[in-house]
Design a protein around this nucleic acid. Structure first.
Lengths: 141, 141
DNA sequence: CTTGACCCTGTAGCCGCTACAGGGTGCATA
DNA sequence: TATGCACCCTGTAGCGGCTACAGGGTCAAG
């Protein structure tokens, strides 16, 4: 007999609710049911969930993971598409880092200018109130 | 007469719906209404919304912004609390950057190992399927 | 035969918006 | 006066990726 949902969850570092969620959205195939209506998972489920969790830990979104699973199922295909997805994600990560670094710099600058004292002449508050006091280009998002 | 919501929105780089959202959650005080039930905003609203938008662009969450607005209203207070909020946020930004850099490295490594060819022996797919092929410690979150 | 750990379904909430639907207002033009 | 259009109003649902219940059923041990 296969794994119960709790066992699968534990084996993959997933919450039980999350496993059910993945099934609901069609990311993980439905499991057989026992006579008591418990889900019963196969080693194939375990592999797939490991794949999913690994991809999630690397920040891939669900849509990407769907595509990757789909591709993994067609071993004869050219892997350019896999590359494209991974590179696109890498680019997104790098963009995010760049934006966060801008925030980091601006926050550091703001905090560094505050020499203690009253809120009334706190540089942090002043800067928030007046964007022109910024080194400017911290973007939205 | 004050600004209409669309004017306020444009002046601050905000969407009209977002302005109404801020009012609904109590981040922006309610505006007076015209005879036609249009919101009418004062310069004080404009300032506050600019403050909010600026803080949002710097990544502060709504709860932090609430606190900052509250503090900005009490100029005689010690600004240590302002500092605490800003430093906490900076720390969060730095943590996020660190996590993203780990992802970036791992993604780079994965992508660099793929030499083209079929999905069947694509290193990207293999790595996703088997966490032990990773340099390990890219965290969750 | 009861306890307690597990399982089931279904639904609502998190964040910070965004995007409608379905209606009203206000001003310019034909 | 009628029409059109840009704007405004309220209310609600959706996004992603879970998470956290409520309210019930199952199963093995003692």
């Amino acid at each position: 007999m296969g794994l119960k949902i709790g066992e699968l969850a534990q084996a993959t570092g997933t919450k039980v609710e999350t496993v059910r969620y993945y099934e609901r959205i069609g990311l993980l195939p439905e499991a057989e049911r026992t006579s008591g209506n418990y889900r019963s998972y196969t080693p194939a489920h375990l592999d797939q969930l490991n794949f999913i969790r690994h991809a999630r830990r690397l920040g891939f979104d669900i849509a990407d993971i769907r595509s990757l699973l789909d591709l993994a199922d067609q071993p004869e295909r050219d892997c350019a598409e896999v590359d494209r997805i991974a590179s696109g994600h890498l680019q997104a990560v790098e963009d995010k880092i760049a934006r966060l670094v801008l925030l980091q710099e601006e926050l550091n600058r703001m905090i560094g200018q505050c020499r203690g004292g009253r809120v009334g002449n706190c540089r942090i508050i002043e800067t928030l109130a007046d964007h022109s006091l910024c080194r400017s280009d911290h973007a939205g998002g």
